[in-house]
Design a protein around this nucleic acid. Structure first.
Lengths: 151, 151
DNA sequence: TCCTATTTAAGAATTATTCTTATACAGGAA
DNA sequence: TTCCTGTATAAGAATAATTCTTAAATAGGA
């Protein structure tokens, strides 16, 4: 799905060295799961990866897909999209605004910025569809988590 | 949690007129659920709202909180944060990039932009914590959904 | 090749969310 | 105001995503 072989090779190499550096075993499952994910750019969920892998690996378990993905996420070898949330969160603020998300505790705070409200939309994005809204998501460590880490 | 009375009044008024316009009954539950959400700015989930309301409304059910929040979301009276996702999605693309999310089908596509990679961070956001990364999320309707709607 | 800590498969368990159904109530009509 | 009726709710069962438990398998070093 739109990933060039050279890019895929690069991702696989980065994955291998990352695993070795972390002292992780290079199991068949980890290699296949990462490769399946790295080969596509449509952000599949665990179930979708699992289905696509079952034909090659009939004994693969869904649990292994989840464990592997979270493990790689913790190592920084992949990312989850948007803020990690245990459940969907809601927001009553209808004004255009932006988010600061704490990577540790999940705290999500709004902020406003006239400048960020008027971002230039790249041609690439227009090619994907009709853009109706834009917002900026900042990720970082909130003050309260910073204090805890400083202990 | 940081919402001024005047802002809360404004939100409540918008909510009331929105319900009436949509022909919805102004039940005690809807008023309380919306008010509880509108009064805070920390993006609670349904469970958190439910707990905070139970003391006033011992017979309130969690299901009603969910139904009400999704209903208000559909009416545009509140928003969910980030892309609606049935399950958490993963991403192997480690380069800085941005997202286009289709509001209809949930399709999420990456795009890159040097310009958007270097956004000015407002002072307000710095005050919330240490900013480590930024990304732009565009919401809209993808080409394929636009075609379906045009039928 | 052998050994052992790590990893996996399988399925049970858990948690968030939605569905089902009988009851309650908002708001219009009398 | 009181009655009526469609809409909304409570309660708990059902479902779906994710995680846990445990016994078996295996990567990689000795």
């Amino acid at each position: 799905m739109g990933i060039h072989q050279s890019e895929l090779d690069k991702r696989m190499e980065h994955f291998r060295s990352g695993c070795i550096k972390a002292g992780l075993k290079l199991t068949q499952q980890r290699l296949e799961i990462f490769k399946a994910l790295a080969a596509r750019d449509d952000h599949p969920d665990a179930e979708a990866l699992f289905s696509s892998l079952r034909s090659h690996m009939p004994t693969l378990s869904l649990d292994t897909v989840y464990r592997t993905l979270w493990l790689l996420n913790d190592l920084g070898l992949i990312n989850t999209l948007g803020p990690r949330r245990e459940s969907i969160r809601f927001d009553a603020n209808l004004r255009q605004h932006h988010h600061f998300v704490c990577l540790r505790c999940g705290l999500t705070r709004d902020f406003e910025s006239d400048l960020l409200n008027e971002l230039p939309i790249p041609e690439d994005a227009h090619a994907m569809g009709k853009v109706l809204a834009s917002q900026v998501e900042l990720r970082g460590i909130c003050d309260s988590c910073s204090q805890i880490e400083a202990l």
